[in-house]
Design a protein around this nucleic acid. Structure first.
Lengths: 240, 240
DNA sequence: CTGTACGCCGTACAACGTACAGTGTCATGA
DNA sequence: TCATGACACTGTACGTTGTACGGCGTACAG
């Protein structure tokens, strides 16, 4: 059984337990497992990260993976923290809170675009990792100009990041999209007949929104719209 | 093989195909399957909704379930639409947009509190269901006082609902929470030693936020905070 | 009465995470 | 130097999941 998760998360820290030196040298390190799993997830989605394919990719036996990682759930935490550690954290300098928040939002949007699978990792233990904590610390600084108390500052950051996550999620084709597209010719007419004249507003707005979404015209309208709303929403805190 | 999903979604509509009258009478209807699955999901989470336990609950054989539902994925869509159909859609009357939006947010919060598993259903085909469409139509009306164009109106509603979803998700203990709590005595001190004096802001704010979250003091601070931000954010659209 | 559409069911398969019981290898304490 | 024991690694096996497939019996249409 490998070291506990907390030590695996901090495995690069000087104080991290190195583990005994006995026995054969490990052919792969925990970092390799995490990196390979991340590559798989980037390429084929989180569902493609199975212990078996991961082991094959690492050229070790299936069960060998458990030498470096306690469980698949732990692995996801390690992957998430490693991903968080990759985001750049440039000092904000003299920027005002608006451009700071904008920078944070953009960075997270890019992160989630690179690693869509992060949307499917919801494990509280991620908060224990060095990458996650460093990122959190940095992002809190985006809000210091607003001079909020601690609880409010945390809530404000959560508010921003939740928007980014939702926005990123909308950009991903969800389950059943293929089915829908495949049957749309039949189902579309069927649906129209069911609807008849009812729900006119929904039909009109839905059609317009759907058209705008897949048309090349302004692909990220929703992003700019939402981010503007977020900033306007936070603006009320500036004067308080 | 049962009827296609679109017809199952609209199975209560007068024009829905009734299916032939031959063969033995069905012991359960699609609606029963959906209702039972919903009960299971409410009580034990979506993971507890397996075809086998569902069949046992309905007192039929495992494979019989597939007579009434095409697949588990389809079932989730049916469950989601049925849940959407339960929300009340009271006319807004003379209310202004602020209280309308507030009502929509509250209704969705209550819905997600009743059926937490809705957070785990992300299937685009849900949008085809009568309950979902009726709900969408109603919620769009919350924004009509703002007099937005169709695309913006849809984006604004999405903005509100995404906030509610994120808020609801935060209220649910995520995976690994048990593990975390179990090992916290050891891991807490370990983490403190790893952190040392670094990331002071994160430590301070994180501690305050964590304390406030589990303290009885103001359990839904984040909700009120976020909703206020959302409303403030939308306010900018009123004057345009 | 007969054909057939339809509800129901038992068996079986592939894939998953992972527990368990090893086997072999190497640094170390005697 | 040698025995000890820690450690990386592996094969087998179990329980669980969704569901494809084929068969069986029922009750209505002709």
């Amino acid at each position: 059984m490998p070291r506990p998760l907390i030590d695996l998360l901090w495995r690069d820290h000087p104080d991290a337990p190195a583990g005994g030196r006995r026995g054969p040298r490990a052919r792969v390190a925990t970092g390799d497992v995490v990196a390979t799993a991340t590559r798989l997830a980037d390429a084929h989605g989180l569902a493609a990260v199975t212990i078996r394919t991961l082991a094959a990719e690492l050229d070790v036996s299936t069960m060998s993976v458990y030498t470096h990682v306690n469980s698949r759930d732990d692995l996801l935490v390690l992957m998430a923290d490693a991903a968080h550690a990759t985001v750049e954290l440039p000092a904000f300098g003299r920027q005002g809170w608006r451009s700071r928040v904008r920078a944070v939002a953009d960075a997270n949007r890019a992160l989630l675009a690179r690693h869509t699978w992060l949307l499917d990792v919801a494990d509280e233990r991620t908060a224990l990792g060095p990458g996650t904590i460093a990122k959190y610390d940095h992002e809190l600084r985006a809000l210091t100009p607003l001079d909020l108390d601690a609880v409010t500052q945390d809530a404000a950051l959560t508010f921003v990041l939740d928007f980014v996550r939702a926005s990123a999620r909308a950009a991903v084709p969800t389950a059943g999209a293929g089915e829908l597209a495949a049957h749309w010719p039949e189902w579309g007419v069927r649906l129209a007949s069911y609807l008849g004249g009812e729900f006119g507003l929904a039909q009109q707005v839905g059609a317009a929104a759907g058209e705008a979404q897949q048309g090349t015209r302004d692909p990220d309208f929703a992003w700019r719209f939402g981010l503007a709303r977020v900033l306007d929403g936070l603006a009320g805190l500036a004067g308080a």
